[in-house]
């Protein structure tokens, strides 16, 4: 029986490989955050072209929301939901292709205390099989192919049964508002206190290791800050982190895109910008990029 199973499995793999190599699967997007992160990193590792002449954005979910905006093609956004900037750094450092410029989000640097994620992606036992066998990649998952087809090709049906728009608009994101008040309050308490020195030191030490590796390749590194909810801007911890960045990476040597005034920016849950605000920030960000020297 095992031989028979082996033969059928081989046929299934060959047929599916043919399907995956002939059909464009770039439209598959509606997965969980974890899967979205993996799709994004696999795309960077195996599919993105001409990285050497492009810019990468690395950050957390605060910057991941920029995916939905009109970010020009010269930018590759590898900011991950629920992960730290270190994950973006590690992805770039593990890949043979290095971007010309890397934009590093400053806001949530303390998440760098968790630096264990994504190591699987960079180990040879998962890197090479995925490189040569696209059916192993996240975007080729059969179940997501079915669900994405449903969400992509049946918008009318979807609209009928849900009563909701098919693409994520400001209105849809506002659903999360339910949690907003408590989230803002919680974050306010957290950001109003000074972060533990040991924690900050560890995070910056980890950042320094990744920074050093990337700088050796000649990549230009630029730091930027995402606007937060109005009441959360300019609090103790944000200032402490910003000052530490300026100390470790002086403004005379490194370039920064300052945080815009938080006034007028809205978030869906106290932290993440709404689509409208993300678009507004993208315009601001692109304006500032024009002024950069590298």
């Amino acid at each position: 029986m095992i031989k028979k199973i082996g033969v059928i499995l081989l046929i299934q793999i060959i047929l599916y490989s043919l399907f995956v190599s002939t059909v464009d699967l770039s439209w598959i997007k509606r997965q969980s955050f974890e899967q979205s992160n993996l799709i994004k990193s696999e795309k960077y590792l195996y599919e993105e072209q001409n990285i050497e002449n492009r810019s990468a954005i690395i950050g957390t979910s605060l910057s991941a929301v920029l995916d939905k905006t009109d970010l020009p093609d010269e930018f590759v956004n590898i900011a991950f939901h629920g992960m730290s900037v270190l994950d973006g750094f590690k992805l770039i450092n593990s890949s043979p292709q290095k971007p010309e410029k890397v934009f590093v989000e400053m806001n949530m640097i303390l998440l760098a205390i968790f630096d264990e994620d994504y190591k699987d992606l960079q180990t040879p036992y998962s890197y090479y099989p995925k490189k040569y066998l696209p059916i192993l990649r996240q975007k080729a998952r059969p179940v997501e192919l079915i669900t994405s087809s449903f969400f992509e090709f049946a918008p009318n049906f979807y609209r009928t049964i849900t009563g909701q728009p098919t693409i994520e608009s400001d209105e849809e994101v506002e659903v999360e508002n339910f949690l907003k008040a408590s989230q803002v309050e919680k974050k306010k308490v957290e950001l109003s206190t000074t972060a533990r020195a040991g924690l900050v030191d560890t995070c910056f030490q980890r950042l320094a290791v990744e920074m050093q590796a990337l700088e050796q390749t000649g990549t230009c590194i630029i730091f930027y800050e995402v606007p937060l909810e109005e009441g959360l801007c300019g609090l103790t911890q944000s200032n402490q982190i910003r000052d530490r960045f300026y100390k470790e990476y002086p403004r005379t040597k490194y370039q920064y895109i300052s945080q815009p005034s938080c006034e007028g920016y809205r978030t869906s849950d106290g932290l993440h910008m709404t689509l409208k605000s993300a678009k507004k920030f993208t315009s601001y960000f692109l304006e500032q990029v024009k002024k950069l020297k590298c």
Partner: peptide, 9 residues
């Protein structure tokens, strides 16, 4: 074989 295929993909 389908179970194995789904484990892989």
């Amino acid at each position: 074989s389908t179970m194995l295929f789904l484990i892989i993909t």
